[in-house]
Nucleic acid binder design. Structure first.
Lengths: 341, 341
DNA sequence: GTGAAAGCGCTAACAG
DNA sequence: CTGTTAGCGCTTTCAC
């Protein structure tokens, strides 16, 4: 069933059918209705490939993420997909893994498929070494590239993110002012946002610095291996490092810290405090429930799509947008001490 | 940059360029190399839309799932995407929500986009009332439809699933033989697989039935609202129903049961047992760690894709494949009592 | 308001 | 081995 069949049955030319299909107003109501009826009764749908070939777009956006089964990225993908669909765009999902090589290859694939734009969900796509980001700049030479929770300055690249640095800074300050000074920063990524979070922690620890320097630990195992994370913290403890608070770069790490504290016999939050990041479902699954930083993922995603659509329409859009996070207080932190001087 | 430009620069016809592009062996090595060089140096990529129009396929599979941010579905989507990509297929993701209306609409959308096949991830796509499944049968009239964890018998519809009934039956039997008889089955979906799980529970409770009938509770709130689930269990308790074991239809519900038990002051597993379903990350996040049924999602997904690819190649494939689940023992259940008669 | 016709870029049958 | 050519189904000028 093609546009020709319809035009024939309706006794009009294919141009007219095309016009009603595309809602042109240069068609008489009578003709339009006739064509519409035929289309309806034949159950005809235009061939998307032919349309794509002519218009040079199939209204499809590529979504790249390292691992869509990651709790946080899964949420991001979901919000992005929903938002895109609301505006008539489809989502081509591409789970790239964490290696540069495969990210670059995935990008090429998406370009080959002629998506209208590409979204890199997660800060792991931006590297420290400039040449490692070339795949982004090159893609941006052809289609707009949107970065979620990362920043990279290049033409046609747009970044939307949460102010991770400030969020962690504030979280750290609050933990300190609740009486915990020996805080361990526990993280697992030195990505763009990973670095920002760390710097927030360090900045907070430098205000009236304690005798010993700030404590930081990098965990480099699987994102889901809670046992390995607990083991890591135990090893730190066994090394003789004392800490009674953990600020974690994500809720998984934080949950591991809570389990670690429980195993060590600390009472939470009286003797041990924990703050996570992402305010994911894990925060509520945790026992006691986790205090966590909410980075307003849904808002970020909505804004990201709005920006992308603007760019696609040829509008001038902000290259970088930053939202503030919010500390959601739950059971793993104490209230701040009110100072009496 | 088109195939014409390349053919011109290489001094050959477009047919020849097309041949080297598609790896035909009816090209002399010299010509092939020359063309390849030009292609390389021009950075030419074939236009996927034109290709799609000619071949009537863009090697794309639609993945429908109610909510890709759901822990379990996210994993499924991930495995499916990885597997598809390995075979050169792209994934068009479509989060449909849980209403029939929108599922049907999403299906139409994917058909319009001319995907080569569609995968329905999750048992919620198959309804009890036959007419509600018409959207599946109609889609299957045009492209193969794959069901993950559901079954529906119609031409060109293929089902791959876990034997939920047996898994729950065995889990229930094991909990009973560990000494807990007042078991509550806690579930939140009366989908195909939901029903199968329930029937497994009921079957197990009918073997040497207890005085009071089997306990079942349907929770109809959000998948992520642990508090509401706990509240539900408390309400059951307050109603005067006594239960010291919970078998849950997913790990979220099970985790809520563990929290409920903790709040009620039961010692786990001595006085209260819990078994979850999916063996998701939550099982390890839980305190104590959750005994859970693993339904081998990765295996299911691999098999699903293998079947789909077979169908696309025109091979005869099994309409229904069933795998066995496995009970993963952790901290919320006691070992079975060894019987001494 | 409507129709004719020229692409869009590629594949594949056919001819040489 | 290589070239010619006819589609694939739709959009969009340009006439009328």
């Amino acid at each position: 069933m093609t546009i020709y069949d319809i035009s024939e049955k309706a006794g009009v030319s294919i141009a007219t059918v095309s016009r009603v299909l595309n809602g042109s107003d240069r068609v008489s109501d009578r003709t339009r209705q006739k064509v519409l009826d035929i289309i309806q009764q034949c159950g005809y749908t235009p061939n998307a490939f032919a349309r794509g070939l002519g218009l040079n777009t199939m209204k499809t956006i590529g979504i790249m993420c390292a691992d869509s089964s990651d709790l946080y990225l899964a949420k991001a993908v979901y919000y992005i997909e929903q938002e895109l669909r609301a505006y008539g765009y489809d989502s081509l999902l591409c789970c790239t893994g964490y290696e540069l090589e495969s990210k670059s290859a995935s990008m090429d694939l998406l370009l080959t498929k002629k998506v209208d734009g590409v979204i890199l969900a997660g800060s792991n796509f931006v590297y420290e070494r400039e040449p490692d980001n070339r795949y982004i700049a090159e893609a941006a030479a052809r289609i707009p590239v949107m970065l979620l929770n990362a920043a990279f300055d290049a033409p046609n690249v747009y970044s939307v993110m949460s102010d991770d640095c400030k969020s962690v800074y504030e979280a750290t300050m609050q933990m300190r002012s609740s009486g915990t000074e020996d805080i361990l920063y526990f993280y697992n990524a030195d990505s763009y946002s990973g670095k920002r979070k760390l710097s927030g922690f360090l900045a907070a620890m430098e205000e009236a610095p304690a005798a010993s320097g700030p404590l930081t630990e990098f965990y480099h195992g699987s994102h889901e291996d809670i046992h390995a994370m607990i083991g890591h913290l135990k090893a730190v403890h066994d090394r003789g490092v004392a800490f009674h608070g953990v600020i974690a770069a994500d809720d998984n790490l934080a949950l591991a810290a809570v389990k670690y504290a429980a195993e060590m016999g600390y009472r939470i939050p009286q003797e041990f405090s924990v703050i996570g990041y992402n305010n994911s479902m894990l925060a509520i699954c945790c026992q006691p429930e986790l205090t966590s930083i909410d980075n307003r993922l849904e808002t970020l995603c909505q804004h990201l799509i709005a920006t992308l659509l603007g760019v696609l329409e040829g509008k001038e859009m902000p290259k970088r947008t930053v939202f503030s996070g919010e500390l959601v207080q739950r059971g793993t932190t104490r209230p701040e001490l009110t100072r009496t001087e």
